[in-house]
């Protein structure tokens, strides 16, 4: 059925989204899928070192990650994203990679803390100098350790990135 949009009251609320009162919204699939993805990011409960404590603090009552729809899941198979919270050592790197590989696509990586970003103060024989050497990192959150607010900002940036996505994960719609 074709609707003649000139005669009925379609209101364009933002670019690419039109609303027909009371409750009909016309928009693209991309927008709907991206909106639903970014509104419920589930990271893996996966702490490596010091940053994990701040990650826990971000999830607890005071900072409350739940209000962004961010709920920690115990299994990588139920998650969308992994927060690399802490130092990645050479012994741990294959495990981290395996956890990442177990996450169903589309999947995202947040490198939390100086160690995960660049190795931090640990320029030693057993530390991986940044987890971007073996993972496709989406957001880098600096700090040693970053405050929960900083992690929050990182997750908001990740949400902004997901909002703009078009072709990368189009196969998995």
């Amino acid at each position: 059925m074709l609707i003649d949009t000139s005669t009925i009251g379609l209101v364009e609320v933002e670019e690419g989204t039109k609303v027909l009162p009371p409750n009909l919204i016309i928009t693209s699939i991309d927008k709907v899928v991206n909106w639903s993805r970014l509104s419920s990011i589930w990271p893996v409960t996966f702490g490596l070192a010091c940053c994990a404590i701040e990650m826990m603090a971000a999830g607890a009552a005071h900072y409350d990650f739940d209000r962004f729809g961010i709920i920690f899941r115990g299994s990588p198979r139920q998650s969308d994203c992994v927060i690399i919270a802490g130092t990645v050592t050479k012994k741990m790197a294959p495990v981290v990679r395996r956890v990442f590989d177990q996450i169903p696509e589309p999947r995202y990586v947040v490198a939390m803390g100086s160690c995960a970003c660049s190795g931090g103060i640990f320029r030693t024989y057993n530390t991986v100098q940044g987890c971007d050497t073996f993972l496709p990192v989406d957001v880098f959150v600096p700090g040693c350790p970053p405050r929960p607010e900083t992690l929050m900002e990182g997750m908001i940036l990740l949400q902004e990135k997901m909002r703009k996505e078009q072709a990368r994960w189009s196969m998995w719609r």
Binding site: L48, A49, G86, T87, T89, K91, M92, V95, F122, T124, Y125, N126, T127
Partner: peptide, 11 residues
């Protein structure tokens, strides 16, 4: 153990 061995003593 050893998955978080960062070499602090050596450092």
């Amino acid at each position: 153990v050893g998955y978080l061995h960062r070499g602090i003593e050596k450092l």
